[in-house]
């Protein structure tokens, strides 16, 4: 692709300083400039980049990099550490309610992958935790949304609760809870319609569903290809719903996925799972370190370390 990884970007500067014995402040400045561009090209939000670059510069101007024999590698190491730390440790655990059923609510923008991820999570819960979830069709707006969830339910041989498109999503969620209790489903996963974070009526609807079902988890589903707007979206959803975690979808693509970093930075909520395809078994725990390498252009990082 046209986008250079961080290592590529640093090549020239590294060549220039190799054999010089000492790294000047000017060299560090050049390197941090490249770090900034690499992060921006990976779609990390520019405000998040600003903070990051400031911290990286501080560490770089210190002895860690200036007095290193391999300053280029050292910068990459510092950057990678900062990114990994910002994204936090691995957290793919799903809540378990004291009294079943455990309720999970899926929310997010249009087309992010909520319905598909609802199916994937249900599959995950059954396979990995031996649970029997009930899927709930609360999207009464998108054409054939209920049909889509019912098809996934069929593929999984799992029950799907729906009341058609005339019912109110809050009522649907409420009735679904009753059925789950009767049928002894230990998890309830609620699929909601995609909506804009600035659509106050529809955001209000989510708040009402939340108040009704008292979910144990609210997952914000975010497309990994999201650009600078990821912070606005995540911040709004989190402010209005106090989400518990994030699922990053479509990571099987070739996007760098800087949105992961932006979202964590503004909400401080963990990215828990990664969607790795359209099929129902393509859900993985989220690995912060792998994500850091990816944002920086992983292949490059490895090749640079080999070259040195």
């Amino acid at each position: 692709m046209a986008f250079e990884g961080l290592a590529d970007r640093l090549q020239d500067t590294i060549k220039k300083i190799t054999g010089k014995g000492k790294v000047s402040e000017q060299d560090v400045k050049e390197m941090t400039r490249e770090v900034r561009l690499a992060l921006l090209e990976a779609d990390v939000n520019f405000k998040v980049v600003k903070d990051l670059v400031k911290r990286i510069k501080e560490r770089a101007v210190g002895q860690e990099v200036m007095e290193s024999l391999t300053p280029g590698q050292q910068v990459i190491k510092v950057v990678k550490e900062e990114l990994t730390e910002l994204m936090g440790g691995e957290q793919s655990k799903i809540a378990v309610a004291d009294r079943p059923p455990t309720v999970i609510m899926m929310v997010g923008l249009q087309g992010a992958g909520k319905t598909t991820t609802t199916g994937k999570l249900a599959n995950h819960l059954r396979k990995k935790h031996n649970r029997s979830p009930l899927l709930v069709a609360c999207d009464v707006y998108r054409p054939a949304a209920i049909n889509q969830l019912e098809t996934l339910g069929e593929q999984l041989s799992m029950p799907v609760f729906s009341m058609g498109t005339e019912a109110n999503p809050v009522d649907i969620a409420k009735k679904a809870m009753e059925q789950a209790k009767e049928e002894h489903n230990d998890y309830v996963i609620i699929d909601t319609a995609g909506r804009l974070h600035v659509d106050s009526d529809l955001m209000e609807e989510l708040e009402q569903i939340k108040a009704t079902v008292k979910p144990d988890e609210i997952f914000l589903v975010v497309d990994a290809m999201t650009g600078q707007d990821a912070v606005n979206v995540a911040e709004s959803f989190n402010e209005q719903l106090d989400i518990s975690g994030v699922v990053l979808t479509k990571l099987d693509g070739d996007t760098r996925g800087g949105a992961a970093l932006s979202i964590k930075a503004v909400t401080d909520k963990p990215v828990k799972f990664a969607g790795m395809g359209e099929k129902l078994d393509q859900l993985e725990p989220f690995h912060p370190e792998r994500m850091a390498s990816r944002i920086l252009g992983m292949g490059d990082v490895l090749s640079l370390i080999e070259k040195a």
Partner: peptide, 14 residues
């Protein structure tokens, strides 16, 4: 193309 998409849209178009 989804307006929410960042730099990856260029790769999509290509």
């Amino acid at each position: 193309l989804d307006a929410t998409t960042g730099q990856n849209a260029l790769s999509q178009a290509k």
